[in-house]
Amino acid sequence: MTPASAVRLRPRSVLAIAVVSVAGLLAFGWPLIIDPGSGIAHGGDAPFVFALLLPLLLAVVLAEISEGGLDVKAVAMLGVLSAVGAVLRPLGAGSAGVELVFFLLVLAGRVFGAGFGFVLGATTLFASALITGGVGPWLPYQMLGAAWVGLGAGLLPRVTGRAEVAMLAAYGALAGLAYGWLLNFSFWPFAVGTGTGLSFVPGDPATANLHRFVLFSIATSLGWDLGRAITNAVLIAVTGRAVLGALRRAAHKAAFDATPEFSRAPEASAMVETRDEPS
Rank of each mutant, 00 (worst) to 15 (best):
L226T: 07
A219Q: 09
L210N: 01
P202T: 02
V243M: 07
A208L: 04
L235F: 09
A242Y: 10
G197V: 13
P189E: 02
D204M: 04
A242F: 09
P202F: 01
F200Y: 15
I230A: 11
F216G: 09
F213E: 00
A208C: 01
P189G: 00
G223E: 12
R228I: 04
G203T: 06
A206V: 13
A219I: 11
R228P: 03
A208P: 09
T239Q: 12
A208E: 14
L222Q: 01
G193K: 01
P205N: 13
I236M: 06
F213N: 00
P189H: 06
V192T: 15
T231I: 04
V192C: 07
A206R: 05
L226H: 07
T196V: 14
D204R: 10
V238T: 14
T239N: 03
A191D: 11
F216S: 00
T194P: 14
F200H: 10
G193A: 03
F216D: 00
F213P: 03
G223Q: 05
L198I: 01
L210F: 14
V214H: 08
A191G: 14
L222I: 12
L215Y: 07
A191T: 11
N209D: 11
A208Q: 14
H211R: 14
L226C: 14
V192Y: 13
T207F: 11
G227V: 10
D204F: 04
A237G: 12
V238D: 01
I218V: 13
L198H: 12
S217G: 07
G193P: 09
G195T: 12
N232W: 01
T239C: 15
H211P: 03
W224G: 04
G203D: 04
A242H: 09
A191C: 05
G197P: 13
F216T: 11
S221P: 06
L235N: 00
V201R: 03
A237I: 06
F190M: 10
L226D: 00
N209S: 06
G203H: 08
I230L: 14
S221M: 12
S221W: 10
T220E: 11
A237K: 14
T239F: 15
T239E: 04
N232A: 03
T231M: 02
P205R: 05
R241N: 13
A242D: 13
P202S: 01
N232G: 11
F213K: 01
A206F: 08
L210I: 06
V201F: 10
A229H: 01
D204Y: 02
L198E: 11
A206W: 15
R241C: 07
